[in-house]
Design a protein around this nucleic acid. Structure first.
Length: 893
RNA sequence: GGGCGGUUAGCUCAGUUGGUAGAGCGUCUCGUUGACGUCGAGAAGGUCAGAGGUUCGAAUCCUCUACCGCCCACCA
């Protein structure tokens, strides 16, 4: 008899257990070249703040995978880390400084970066603690940071390699520009927001054009029409003077298929320097511009979103101010035909929400179409290769539906702009030669002297050029996704040929939310295939977003967010983990609400109490005994062991298929229904077998450990185990513990008890009231005699008479159960009339079932095509239903 | 505009080679039975969005429709 506390108190144990795991070295895999390792690179949380539910679900799922594989004896490595998240972090620090009325320019680059580092160190330690709170069994000795020394070396090495391969180039192109961040953004870093705008119809030489951005009129160099448009066809190639508030200017008419004849007037004003579509049109019509001597690129908006000094009286105005002023002036000139309300999608910065200003800028790009990766005799572009690895199945995405999304994105990928005008990040390893004067000028104000950074004598190298006095490093930093794209191998020590890298790469699974499939997953594939010529991981597991009870996105502003840490404090980590895993399927969003967590807290407590009961019924001696199949004594023992074995088998299949929700649900069900409600209840009588009681429970604890590591570990300890559960071997099938006949017999007994209980309840017999029963058991007399005590206790019977067969008992209620007849003499206790009616209804139901099975079995097609097993089952069932109905009919008379 | 999902019990969702519709929560009726009221026993509740097709048999496969959602593109 061992007694433990009445309820599980997570808070009391969790931190201590985590420390014990960590200090035992269990998180650190042993390199064993004979075994294939299991590796997950943890998606590094941004170094900006705190853990949210997205991280929590990520940590829960990855920990399940890692613990499961570790218990299977596979060297399992889970590398944690953080991402410097250049723009996000810089913005955050800028905001904090703004509260003190300080700008980054007040501090200067160096001082500002010191501030950022301070901030990052602080949030990193917060994040570390939170990852620990979730019970994540990651290897902290290998923790990395995208901006640490080693990773910086990896970033520089890859950049130089790409530069040498001519894959990276610097060029003036139209880019997404955030005037607030004063930086470029990649195409997929642009968000769209529906916004109510005006559509201005402007008289435009011989045309009328419609635009939402009249201020860009100052940068117009053409009007585009569809070459098939009869109205304008003849004008293509001609030059027209256009009246404006700043006097006249010339435009050329170009023909381009992308112009929609139906929209507006069918003629579009073209501002190549400030619109992606216009830029492309100008590219396609280069020759036309050349012929008439018009320079297509007329830049009128600067990096701060203000009108350039070539804009006369509008110079210095913001685009918004300019729009207002210009429209007013055009109205005075009678050039505005009409103004309509119009809704369209505004491009905004995904980090700060500010309106994007497309403009021409000199930036670094990665050419995604250049054939550069050797593949046999051919060379393939990084784009082609990245598509191929998914097509060939070298990388498997779960769920598969994302393959299509991935292909679509990858196919339409344009050259990737990788330079950012952000201070915080990896500096670009390119050096520009300058004479002394230029250098002085540049250093005085780098922001305004970018034009001095000439390409001609630029050097790309990690080291500063020898002649360092004449070189200035590129002031830009790299897109944060450039470094996170290298994450799976840079964290393993690459570019050094470390043992870790050789052994652990490629990694096994990349688990993350589907929302960063493009941002990160796709870029990892690109970068890794290019750099190493291998995949970064073999499986991509994508989880869904966590939403609130009404399916709404959780957000601070909506106030519907759930803080995982608060929930952990209230209910413990284990329930939070379960609530994030069970009920979720890969790639699908999942709702989370507090009641759900509370429900799993109940489950955790249930396991605790089942263990409490088991421990109360075993001796210290029992704890030391080792279970073997021969220790199974009773039918109940054999039944639960058979069920347990089926559970182990099914769980293994689910775990291998990444069906964690189903695996979790199944174990939950086993513990609660099979183990607690039946086996434990049965064990309260004569048939007690402490060894089986313990063995089944301990096996279930092992299966549950990846899901709810804390409570299972604690119970493991309480069961007298000296080694930790985290390092225990994963349960495997044991055919010696399968007892088909006994399992089936016990199911019969269970079913019988249920039927008696059900009838009692329907007839409103008080639960406490003991009643008599006579069972004609046929061949099952022996079984029922063995289980007599259990049946009596669980069905609340006073006097149980078991016979092989006998006569109908007048005035007693009959329950038919296959060939068995159970009579309950309840005459005095029930309303016989009502009961007769109920009985009739039941018989009709039975008759319907019989009819439906009969028609199925007389269907030639069914008999011919259905599997034999199924036909056998149906026949068996028909016989059973028929027997039962006959008995009922007999009893009615 | 292009693509992808979803629609199953009052609510949140499972349902993996097509073979008698499931869970949790909620509801109702009982219950102080040797662990657990963070509990137990029992019950009610579903023409699986709609229409057609394939099949002996469809929630499951195909086609169409409706509604909801997401992603990509971005038309001035």
């Amino acid at each position: 008899m061992i007694e433990i506390e009445k309820a599980y108190e997570a808070k009391k144990y969790e931190d201590k257990i985590y420390e014990k795991w960590e200090s035992s070295g269990a998180f650190k895999p042993k390199i064993d070249k004979k075994k294939k390792p299991f590796v997950i690179s943890m998606p590094p949380p941004n170094a900006t703040g705190v853990l949210h539910l997205g991280h929590a679900v990520m940590l829960a799922l990855e920990d399940i995978m890692i613990r499961y594989n570790r218990m299977k004896g596979i060297p399992s490595l889970w590398i944690p880390g953080t991402d410097h998240a250049s723009i996000a972090t810089q913005n955050k620090v800028e905001q904090l400084l703004a509260q003190k009325k300080i700008t980054k320019y007040d501090l200067g680059r160096e001082e500002f970066l010191k501030e950022v580092d301070k901030f990052v160190k602080n949030s990193q330690s917060t994040i570390r603690n939170q990852i620990r709170k979730m019970g994540s069994s990651c290897d902290w000795t290998r923790e990395r940071y995208t901006l640490d020394e080693g990773l910086t070396a990896a970033v520089q090495t890859v950049f130089v390699k790409m530069f040498k391969d001519d894959l990276i180039y610097r060029g003036s192109r139209i880019v997404n520009w955030c005037p607030r961040c004063e930086s470029t953004l990649a195409d997929d870093e642009v968000d769209y927001k529906e916004s109510g705008e005006k559509l201005y119809w402007i008289k435009y030489g011989p045309f009328t054009v419609a635009t939402t951005r009249p201020e860009t009129k100052l940068g117009d160099t053409a009007v585009a029409v569809n070459p098939a448009d009869k109205r304008y066809k003849k004008m293509i190639g001609q030059v027209f003077p256009i009246k404006s508030a700043l006097g006249e200017y010339n435009i050329v008419v170009i023909g381009d298929k992308s112009v929609d004849m139906e929209f507006g007037s069918g003629a579009v004003k073209v501002t190549p320097a400030h619109s992606f579509a216009d830029f492309e049109m100008a590219q396609r019509n280069k020759e036309v511009f050349k012929k008439v001597g018009i320079e297509p690129m007329k830049e009128v908006i600067d990096e701060k979103g203000r009108m350039k000094n070539n804009c006369g009286k509008y110079s210095g105005m913001t685009t918004k101010e300019c729009r207002r002023a210009l429209v007013e002036d055009l109205e005075k000139l009678g050039l505005i035909e009409k103004i309509e309300d119009y809704t369209h999608n505004l491009s905004i910065c995904y980090r700060c929400g500010y309106t994007i200003e497309p403009l021409i800028s000199k930036q670094w790009f990665i050419n995604v179409d250049k054939p550069v990766i050797k593949d046999g005799a051919k060379k393939k572009s990084i784009k082609e290769k990245s598509i191929e690895v998914i097509k060939k199945g070298e990388i498997k995405i779960i769920p598969e539906k994302f393959n299509k999304t991935y292909f679509n994105w990858m196919t339409n990928l344009h050259d990737w702009c990788i330079s950012r005008q952000i201070w915080f990040g990896h500096k670009i390893p390119v050096w520009y030669k300058m004479d002394e004067n230029s250098k002085k000028e540049y250093e005085k104000n780098p922001e305004k002297s970018r034009h001095l950074l000439g390409d001609k004598e630029a050097i790309c190298s990690i080291e500063k050029p020898d002649d360092k006095n004449h070189y200035v490093q590129d002031p830009d930093t790299l897109d944060t996704w450039f470094s996170s794209g290298l994450w799976t191998f840079s964290t393993l020590g690459w570019p050094n040929k470390t043992e870790d890298f050789e052994y652990f790469h490629p990694t096994s699974v990349l688990e993350t939310g589907y929302d960063i499939l493009f941002f990160w997953v796709a870029r990892m594939i690109i970068m890794t295939e290019y750099t190493l010529g291998e995949v970064p991981f073999k499986t991509v597991y994508l989880h869904g977003l966590i939403r609130d009870k009404n399916g709404k996105k959780m957000s601070k502003s909506a106030g519907n967010g759930i803080d995982p840490l608060e929930m952990i404090a209230k209910y413990g980590t284990d329930p939070v983990r379960l609530s994030l895993v069970i009920g979720g399927t890969p790639g699908n969003d999942m709702c989370l609400f507090e009641e759900k967590i509370a429900g799993y807290r109940n489950f955790v407590n249930k396991i605790w109490n089942a263990s409490r009961f088991a421990l109360m019924n075993v001796s210290e001696e029992d704890l030391k005994k080792k279970f073997t199949a021969v220790m199974a004594k009773s039918t109940a023992d054999k039944w639960i062991l058979t069920e347990l074995n089926a559970l182990v088998k099914a769980t293994n299949v689910d775990m291998e298929k990444y069906n964690f929700s189903e695996a979790g649900t199944r174990i939950y069900d086993f513990i609660w229904n099979n183990y607690c409600d039946w086996f434990l209840e049965m064990s309260k009588g004569e048939h007690k077998n402490p060894i089986v009681l313990l063995h089944v429970l301990k096996t279930a604890l092992k299966l549950l450990h990846p899901f709810i590591p804390f409570v299972t570990e604690k119970l493991w300890e309480l069961m007298g185990e000296k080694t930790m559960l985290i390092a225990e071997a994963w349960p495997l099938e044991d055919k010696n513990t399968v007892f088909k006949k006994e399992a089936k017999d016990l199911e019969e007994v269970k079913e019988m008890i249920s039927k008696i209980r059900s009838l009692r309840s329907e007839l409103k017999v008080e639960p406490a009231k003991k009643i008599n029963a006579i069972i004609y058991a046929g061949k099952q007399v022996k079984l029922l005699e063995e289980k007599r005590e259990i049946i009596e206790r669980m069905a609340r019977l006073e006097n149980l008479q078991i016979e092989e067969k006998g006569k109908k008992i007048e005035g007693a209620k009959l329950i038919t159960h296959g060939t068995m007849e159970i009579y309950l003499p309840l005459k005095d206790m029930i309303d016989m009339e009502k009961e007769a009616k109920r009985m009739k209804e039941e018989m009709i139901k039975k008759q319907n079932i019989i009819t439906s099975i009969e028609s199925k079995l007389s269907n030639k097609g069914f008999v011919k095509n259905a599997p034999k097993e199924l036909i056998g089952k149906e026949k068996e069932r028909l016989a059973k239903e028929k027997t039962e109905l006959a008995k009922m009919a007999e009893n009615m008379v």
